[in-house]
Design a protein around this nucleic acid. Structure first.
Length: 480
RNA sequence: GCGCCCAUCGUCUAGCGGUCUAGGACGUCGCCCUUUCACGGCGAAAACAGGGGUUCGAGUCCCCUUGGGCGCGCCA
């Protein structure tokens, strides 16, 4: 057990918590829980234009739904702007940073020129050593507002020892002098993230590999301040099913969308963890097992594609493995988020709960998601007379109705209404009529559920109860 | 364009120089079970991107090519 591990999840509240972010959060969480350390949640809201409260809410809601809790209060980065500025001032005082008066237009020209000369498009450092000169005096006289830039090393190279990527080396000449403070004197992400991670004692940074280059640049800030550089782990981004970057186009929205799709949080955690991380051939890990087994060393460096079919399959396994009462709880909790789930939720009472509990074993066997579970349970919520789907209607032909009419009195005469008793009655009828079981059971299913697929028909009879069952059978037996 | 990263079945992956005529899972396709649909069981098709090396021996190490990803903002 390593000591004092501190990880953090640091989303920017410019949108929902997307699936890649959720996985990053999961990995951070796993690491913290595994070592008995802490995971912090820090909202990176230094971009005031694009940060929204709705996004913050969505992120927190998503984290909670996924079961990823964090230690301490949620930290809002913008609230720490004064401290960030303070560090920038210190950097300035140390000569490790400087004021740059270049205008946006000049910057554009610089990039344009660099492109033309096929150099990397970067700031050329023209204000690096102009502090206190006539040029600066002129710029100030013109009323130009400077940004503060880090005086980054131009020679040599910066080496990142990454837990996932291994040793990665960047030539310093390719890293330019990043902006610490904007011309309105607000801190940038580059500065804020380093100051916060340092101040909060973060020991292990796990984030998307789109930040890999940033790690090198941020290292320069740590070095300039004489701070310890935390351990890095840059994990690959998740790609959409087509191999391209995950985007709205793939229907891959926030984690709330996965809740609405009827997935169980524990199944999603398992799936997400297995995406780009593996331990031999093993597919299933309970959350406790995940905490135990997870290791950055086994995180792959190549991006993985998101595969809904596999998630769905895994979700189905989780549903079937879960005990009925627990699954019912999950189902009830998710219902309001499911498509058309609100109507069903409104009809839930003690009777319905009892029926759902009774039917759960048969229902979960046939569902890979909670949506499918709701779909399968619809016959419990239907009111007489039932609407039959096309295939059910076909089964309720003359022959089918005949069987139902003949069967009805036998069922009605039953002293007790259980699955076993109804089964005995139906089988007895089948034997004496010479029909095949399917020829009777299928019309019965159509009559009771309005469909051709459902849980075992005798369970359906018991769940629905004598009165409702008989009523539905009578409805169907009548010629339409 | 420059820099960094990556590359085993359609997808997620096992593989860490010989045990690989490449294993598992999802998906697909058969068959079985069966009152429907599922579940489950059995089986099949399906991959080491290409080319050079190193080595007695390469999916495993090195190089190149190709292909993909990420970064290059007064965004985070």
């Amino acid at each position: 057990m390593s000591t004092n591990v501190v990880t953090r999840f640091a989303p920017s509240p410019t949108g929902y918590l997307h699936i890649g972010g959720a996985r990053t959060a999961l990995f951070n969480w796993l690491l913290a829980r595994q070592t008995g350390g802490k995971m912090l949640l820090r909202i990176e809201d230094t971009d005031r234009e694009r940060s929204t409260d709705a996004a913050i809410e969505a992120i927190i809601d998503g984290m909670k739904w996924l079961g990823l809790d964090w230690d301490g209060e949620t930290i809002y980065q913008f609230a720490r702007a004064a401290r960030h500025r303070e560090v920038a001032e210190e950097l300035l005082a140390r000569g490790a940073a400087y004021r740059c008066y270049a205008t946006p237009q000049e910057l554009d020209e610089m990039r344009e020129l660099a492109r033309k000369e096929s150099r990397p498009p970067r700031y050329d450092g023209r204000w690096r050593d102009l502090g206190g000169t006539q040029a600066e005096a002129d710029a100030i006289a013109e009323g130009r507002k400077p940004v503060v830039r880090l005086k980054a090393p131009r020679e040599g190279e910066t080496v990142i020892e990454d837990k996932v990527q291994g040793t990665v080396t960047f030539p310093n000449k390719d890293l330019d002098d990043l902006i610490l403070l904007r011309s309105d004197s607000t801190p940038t992400y580059m500065l804020a993230v380093v100051v916060d991670d340092h101040d909060m004692g973060v020991t292990q940074i796990v984030r998307g590999d789109d930040h890999l280059t940033n790690a090198a640049r941020q290292t320069h800030i740590y070095q300039a301040m004489g701070w310890d550089v935390p351990a890095f782990a840059h994990i690959p981004l998740i790609h959409g099913p087509d191999g391209a970057k995950m985007s709205k186009r793939h229907g891959a929205l926030g984690v709330d969308a996965y809740r609405a799709l009827g997935y169980l949080p524990e199944a999603l955690r398992n799936y997400l963890a297995r995406l780009g991380w593996s331990q031999g051939d093993r597919e299933f890990f309970s959350t406790d097992e995940l905490i135990e087994a997870f290791s950055l060393a086994q995180v792959h460096r190549s991006p993985a594609r998101f595969d809904y079919a596999k998630l769905e399959n895994m979700n189905g396994h989780y549903m079937r493995a879960m005990d009925d009462a627990a699954l019912l709880q999950q189902f009830l909790a998710a219902l309001p988020y499911l498509p058309d789930g609100k109507d069903m939720a409104a009809q839930i009472d003690e009777t319905k709960k009892r029926q759902l509990a009774r039917a759960m074993a048969g229902l979960k066997e046939r569902a890979k998601t909670l949506i499918e579970l709701a779909e399968g349970a619809r016959f419990l919520f239907a009111r007489r007379p039932l609407a039959y789907d096309e295939k059910a209607r076909d089964l309720l032909n003359e022959g089918g109705r005949g069987h139902l009419a003949a069967l009805a009195p036998k069922l009605a005469a039953l002293p007790e209404w259980t699955a076993a008793a109804t089964e005995a009655a139906v089988r007895a009828y089948v034997a004496e009529s010479g029909a095949k079981l399917g020829q009777v059971a299928q019309p019965l299913r159509a009559a009771l559920t309005g469909r051709t697929t459902s849980p075992g028909i005798f369970d359906v009879l018991e769940t629905l109860g004598r009165e409702e069952s008989l009523g539905r059978i009578d409805d169907a037996a009548r010629p339409s």
